[in-house]
């Protein structure tokens, strides 16, 4: 797993993807930091964190699009799948590389919190909980993007499809409001990514949310492994 992880991190930085991802992530988070904290003159970061959800929906597909699609296109996948490593090592090696880059991107909002703390009081408990929620949200989203990347051999297709998938997850609440069957409402409410995330930005930390996001990440990574297993057996 280490070898795949290191190669993937290297590939992020030799291609321009890491720089583009980090730059765009930081530009948007910087703008929302200014708009929700600096301009109104508050140390309440909940506005910033609420906006971060949508930034993730837009940017995580860029992070995950080439993970597997490029391997398939360049035929390097064959080298991976015939190497003495398990499918789990391959999938998680790549997944963690994307997750580490994402975590790197989260450092900037952390710097914003430090900046705020020099001007006023920052509720560190809430801020840390928010970071944890944002990290877990990204972990779940990256797993979704990784699966989509494994299903196509075109980076752009992978990016667009991942975006659609993440957007659909974001829209669960909107869809839910159009449905008036209480049974389905209940299920969709439980599946809502945004509702859980929003609750944390408001200061309502819930362990079930942590478990929810981690489960989503594991389930989608498991699906990715299954995709490769199925392809081998087809």
């Amino acid at each position: 797993m280490g070898a795949i992880f290191r190669r993937e991190i290297g590939a992020y930085f030799t291609s321009s993807i890491a720089y583009i991802f980090l730059a765009v992530f930081w530009i948007f988070s910087g703008y929302f930091f200014w708009a929700s904290c600096l301009y109104p003159g508050t140390s309440d970061m909940s506005g910033l964190f609420q906006s971060m959800f949508l930034i993730c929906v837009f940017l995580i597909p860029i992070l995950t699009m080439r993970l597997f699609s490029e391997e398939k296109k360049q035929k390097t996948e064959q080298g991976l799948l015939t190497a003495p490593v398990s499918l789990g090592e391959i999938v998680f090696g790549k997944y963690f590389a994307a997750l580490v880059l994402y975590t790197l991107a989260l450092l900037m909002p952390f710097v914003y919190a430090l900046i705020l703390s020099s001007f006023g009081t920052v509720e560190w408990g809430i801020v840390i909980a928010n970071f944890l929620a944002l990290f877990l949200l990204g972990a779940a989203f990256i797993a979704v993007g990784t699966l989509v990347s494994a299903l196509t051999e075109n980076q752009i297709a992978a990016a667009v499809l991942s975006f659609v998938a993440l957007m659909a997850l974001y829209m669960i609440d909107v869809i839910n409001s159009y449905i008036s069957i209480s049974f389905i409402n209940n299920i969709l409410e439980k599946l809502s990514f945004y509702r859980r995330y929003y609750a944390i930005t408001c200061g309502l930390f819930n362990v079930s949310t942590v478990i929810f996001y981690i489960s989503v990440a594991l389930i989608f990574n498991y699906f990715t492994i299954r995709v490769f297993e199925r392809r081998r057996w087809s």
């Binding site: 190669r7 590939a11 360049q74 035929k75 390097t76 996948e77 064959q78 080298g79 991976l80 015939t82």
Partner: peptide, 13 residues
Amino acid sequence: GYLPELPPLYLDM
């Protein structure tokens, strides 16, 4: 040790 028809090379390395 396997050399497939198309060598699995990462071009950017």
